[in-house]
Amino acid sequence: MTRADYKGEEMVIANSVDKIYANNCHALKKVSVTVKRGEVVVIIGPSGSGKSTFLRTLNQLETVTEGEVIIDGIKMYDPSTNINTLRENVGMVFQSFNLFPHLSVKKNVMLAPLKVLKLSKAQVEEEAIKLLTRVGLGEKINVFPSQLSGGQQQRVAIARALAMKPDLMLFDEPTSALDPEMVGEVLEVMKSLAEEGMTMVVVTHEMGFANEVADRVLFMEDGQLLVDDVPDKFFKNPSHPRLKKFLSSIL
């Protein structure tokens, strides 16, 4: 089944995902999550809870030890699945930006569409400038990443992921490495993306963002998914004692 054939409602189905690292660290314990098309799901939890690991299993930066992952109707561990094709449809934004430092901002955005989708240079360049303008960096297309602030770099990283026209975006603590005054500009871009109907899974510590933008908020601890709720209930009326403890410790 190809991506175009799938019209199902579920964008992400993770079915009792288990992850045990080579050093016997049990990072994920039977995590099951379903994300519907157009939904914004925020995952929070203390560090070491497995939330980043779970996010990374959704584009196979981590393989799972057991369980099933289906992205946009494609079974990730089916032998006929080409993981590169699957990843083209799943954009990822990292905590440490991971821009390509040897390429200009514009070329960072252009590289994957050129080399993976094999689109024409003129088309890719036009699209790149459009995307960079959209994230507010239309003036900076020819500078190198090292000349940008953290917030600007993260916005380039978002534009780079969007250049592949993904149906799903993963955000792995996108604002954690930023100076406080730059958090806002990145969250703003993410918010506008959510408003356009992008399906997003976001690992973050920004409770405000979770409360305002998320359709559902998940709470993870010790590799287990403990709470999966709408933000209103999640924050105002936490259903799990561990979540109650976590919220009281950070607020």
Partner: peptide, 8 residues
């Protein structure tokens, strides 16, 4: 990781 996550 960034390169692979872009489908390369």
């Amino acid at each position: 990781e960034a390169a692979r996550s872009l489908g390369m």
